[in-house]
């Protein structure tokens, strides 16, 4: 199945896989946050992903960051998202340079945007779950926008 990135369908598929792989995500523990995924480029997109307990319960595309209460937003150009997912595709996990932590560490590749430092720290409190969530794209056939 080919699935377009970026799209609501793409993140809903990851949410569906998260629910299907309950044992993995239950082991990682509760995850309660609403985060933004921002894809910059000629046609920018912003998505709100809501995580509750062990699931991603809601995926929405936003027209403005003000349309949802986002704890933090991971913002990067489409080319970087593509590099990250292609790295994940190789072995099921990203190469060290392409983990969410590495990409966002100093902020010069992937920006972590937030209003409230407590929201920002949720990125780190739930890091393992969020990384495992994106790693599920490893065997998706992605059509790049």
């Amino acid at each position: 199945m080919t699935i377009k990135f970026p799209s609501v369908d793409f993140f809903q598929e990851l949410a569906r896989r998260m629910e299907a792989d309950a044992a993995e995500f239950e082991k990682l523990g509760f995850c309660d946050t609403t985060l933004g995924i921002q894809v910059n480029g000629d046609a920018p997109h912003l998505y709100a992903l809501t995580f509750e307990v062990f699931d991603c319960t809601d995926v929405r595309e936003l027209s403005s960051p003000d349309d949802a209460e986002l704890d933090f937003t991971l913002a990067a150009p489409l080319s970087l998202w593509r590099e990250m997912f292609e790295s994940i595709k190789k072995t099921g996990h990203p190469e060290p340079a392409f983990t969410l932590n590495s990409l966002s560490h100093v902020g010069d590749q992937m920006a972590v945007v937030y209003d409230d430092p407590e929201g920002h720290d949720k990125f780190y409190r739930f890091m393992a779950t969020i990384q495992a969530f994106v790693d599920q794209a490893s065997d998706l056939d992605i059509e790049w926008a």
């Binding site: 190469e95 060290p96 340079a97 983990t99 932590n101 590495s102 560490h105 100093v106 780190y124």
Partner: peptide, 8 residues
Amino acid sequence: RHIGACSP
């Protein structure tokens, strides 16, 4: 975070 970003 730095160790995770620097060590392969």
